[in-house]
Design a protein around this nucleic acid. Structure first.
Lengths: 225, 225
DNA sequence: ACCGAGGCTGAACGCTTCCTGAACAACTCA
DNA sequence: TGAGTTGTTCAGGAAGCGTTCAGCCTCGGT
């Protein structure tokens, strides 16, 4: 996961960075609004934590500009307890959640995981399922860091399954998604694609990312990590 | 919009009701957990605001039971500022957001609109019977968290029994449900399916989820939890 | 206690679905 | 135009699933 932390107080920022920079989370930090704006555009992050009380450019302006630029990652704002108006303004500017200062790190952690879980649908960029990493922005897939080359249809098939991970997707649903309503029902293209996907994603054969539910369809079976 | 407000302090509840009961919003109110549980099931609401500090049944229990019963409306919790653990626990129980007391009405309003805006998504209707969990959306069954793989007919048989839990279902009724009116009366398919179901759902043999009523049929015997 | 009917279960069979390797067709790019 | 890549079809084989059957067990009545 990629996390962007915007906070002008050095001590607090260091605390946050230290807390979140574990097991595969890449953390980028900004101390003022200018850096934040730049990183929000250049660093394809999955979630941002923004302190509203920033020097120069206010946090609310940062959020507003990010949203106007089309960035959709979830935003968690930090705000002093005294001025609740800020929270409302921040939420209206496009933030998704807030925590009031002073806070407990566990509280922030809880909100972050909640936001990530909620964003599982239209999250930009990267998602990790066990050893398999999918970058929905770049349409690339890697396994244990090694890039896996997928063709267009292979990727689309995988993406649709992953997007509905844990749910059984019928072949008809998959086909209708891959080919706009014009499909031949007695073709086995899907089976071929799924076969090729399995071979590419799981050459060893012990991961079993895609389960077939006989008579019902397929299901992507890895837990998000 | 239909809104359910659960709050034991009369003054505060009245304030909330008065604030939200405008332009087409139907507001239902509950003063304790018992009423809340009832209304949550009977009043098809779009969003609930729940105070965690309730007499008798705690707000967290209410939320947990709603979620287990398959209700998916967004839940906003109200909690005293002092104990932040409640918020975390509430969010883990299935709430979507929180506001700390004392609060400004505008703040609650902002969170409510935010929740409603993002309420377009997610669906999984789960039912829990003791250690057995049935997800009717995904057509999956799990036992103590472990997934139980069922074939189509096994699942259909179970689903029908569970749907009429506590009632005796005759073999003819079950067969007619599984096979559209075209069935062979001297076949023992059902017995085979029930046998396989028992083995899969209750390998130990001490749960006895499906009872045999000799000469009458079968009955699903677990209490909904 | 005995007997018969109803219920259970392990094994087997055949049908359907799914997988897979390979060939073929269509498309892309130089 | 020709080589390489990607999408599609096909056929044979493998596996899963519903179904049947035979033999055993269990319950309830006499």
């Amino acid at each position: 996961m990629r996390l962007l932390i915007v906070e002008d107080e050095d001590v607090l920022r260091a605390q946050l960075v230290e807390h979140f920079a574990v097991n595969g989370t890449v953390v980028e930090e900004a101390a003022d609004g200018r850096d934040a704006l730049y990183l929000g555009s250049e660093f394809p992050c999955d979630l941002a934590i923004v302190d509203l009380g920033l020097p120069e450019i206010s946090g609310i302006d940062v959020i507003r500009q990010w949203r106007q630029a089309g960035h959709e990652f979830p935003i968690l704002i930090l705000t002093a307890r005294s001025n609740w108006q800020d929270k409302v303004e921040g939420l209206e500017a496009g933030a998704d959640d807030y925590v009031t200062k002073p806070f407990h790190l566990e509280e922030v952690q809880a909100r972050v995981t909640a936001l990530m879980r909620r964003a599982a649908g239209h999250a930009s960029s990267q998602v990790q399922y066990g050893p398999i990493n999918i970058d929905t922005g770049a349409r690339t897939v890697s396994r244990e860091g090694e890039a896996v080359e997928l063709t267009t249809y292979e990727y689309n098939t995988l993406a649709y399954l992953v997007h509905h991970a844990g749910k059984v997707i019928s072949k008809t649903e998959l086909t209708e998604h891959l080919y706009d309503q014009d499909y031949d029902r007695d073709s086995n293209v899907l089976e071929v694609f799924v076969g090729r996907l399995r071979k590419k994603l799981d050459p060893g054969g012990d991961l079993k990312p895609i389960a077939t539910i006989r008579g019902a369809g397929y299901r992507f079976d890895l837990e998000r990590t």
